[in-house]
């Protein structure tokens, strides 16, 4: 509960929202859905800037990318046909797995999901492998790669206005592989995408949750796979590497040992899923 909350602003433009945030820094926060903010005991926040009137609730398809406004509810991503067909459906699937409850997904927003990302954030993990960017408004607009945005710890007084997801290149396939708790909460998840050329893995992007602070890319495995055929042998090697490079955390959902033990299997599931999609589309011989 926000017991010291005194002020609530509903600006109608991005410059007005930025002005409020700049003037009252320290005890003011941005509010979109509020699912994580409102339920927590918080005596520090004194004012909120509700950004749901800024026109940032949209999903737009461009020629090379899909843009999702920061206040778009997560459930709209689950239901959206464009996103259901994009990137093997992993954006919609990741959105669905953010919460078992449709009531939460109806309220939580893309921006909120990303700025509150933690070690188990499957949606952030998926955005990492799709090489999404976030656009920030703050004086002037600028774009940041997803990992840079969270590594730099925050928005520097700016406002996250949209997520830009590049469309996958031809012959690219993507997959997610979660392990869910009994409340359908992903306790560990791997995500990946593979681009094939002439029967070989031309590019691979892999990421995994359960790492300190936020999900991490698995660069060493990606580099290992590139230029090799994706088959039983290379996937087995990738699994071995996963065991070596993955340094998970322990939390109330799973131990470090458990996550380390299952990570190779998740990498295997992601890579085989991409391979099967490619074979279904006869894509590996391109």
């Amino acid at each position: 509960m926000l017991s010291n909350l005194k002020g609530y602003y509903r600006p109608q433009s991005i410059p007005s929202a930025l002005a409020l945030l700049e003037k009252n820094s320290g005890s003011i926060l941005v509010l979109a859905g509020g699912t994580k903010l409102i339920l927590n005991e918080n005596n520090i926040v004194k004012e909120l800037v509700d950004i749901t009137s800024l026109g940032l609730d949209y999903i737009k398809e461009g020629s090379g990318e899909i843009r999702i406004g920061a206040t778009t509810p997560i459930q709209q991503i689950v239901e959206n046909r464009i996103l259901g067909n994009a990137a093997g459906g992993i954006i919609s699937r990741a959105a669905h797995l953010t919460s078992h409850s449709i009531m939460v997904r109806n309220t939580s927003t893309v921006g909120g999901e990303l700025v509150t990302s933690g070690p188990l954030s499957l949606f952030y993990c998926t955005m990492l492998v799709l090489q999404a960017q976030v656009r920030i408004a703050g004086g002037e607009e600028f774009a940041l790669a997803m990992n840079v945005f969270l590594d730099k710890k925050g928005l520097g007084g700016g406002l996250l206005i949209e997520v830009v997801i590049p469309k996958l290149p031809a012959h690219s396939y993507a997959a997610v592989a979660p392990i869910l708790s009994d409340m359908d909460r992903p306790i560990i998840c791997a995500a990946g995408r593979v681009t094939f050329k002439k029967g070989l893995c031309q590019k691979a992007k892999l990421a995994i949750t359960g790492t300190p602070r936020v999900p991490q890319r698995l660069h060493r495995i990606e580099e290992f796979l590139e230029g090799k055929p994706l088959d039983g042998s290379s996937i087995a090697d990738a699994m071995e590497m996963a065991e070596a490079v993955y340094e998970p955390i322990s939390d109330s959902f799973a131990s470090e040992e458990y996550r380390k033990a299952v990570a190779p299997s998740l990498i295997k599931r992601v890579l085989y899923d991409c391979l099967e999609q490619a074979q279904d589309m006869s894509g590996t011989s391109e």
């Binding site: 509010l31 509020g34 409102i38 339920l39 749901t52 939460v104 309220t107």
Partner: peptide, 25 residues
């Protein structure tokens, strides 16, 4: 905690938890 659904209401056609939403919203 936004987990049980006992507080569910419909806001503009969508089911939401009323415990995790401010009246101002």
């Amino acid at each position: 905690d936004g987990q049980c659904g006992s507080c569910s209401v419909i806001v503009d056609g969508r089911a939401v938890h009323s415990c995790s939403r401010l009246a101002a919203q």
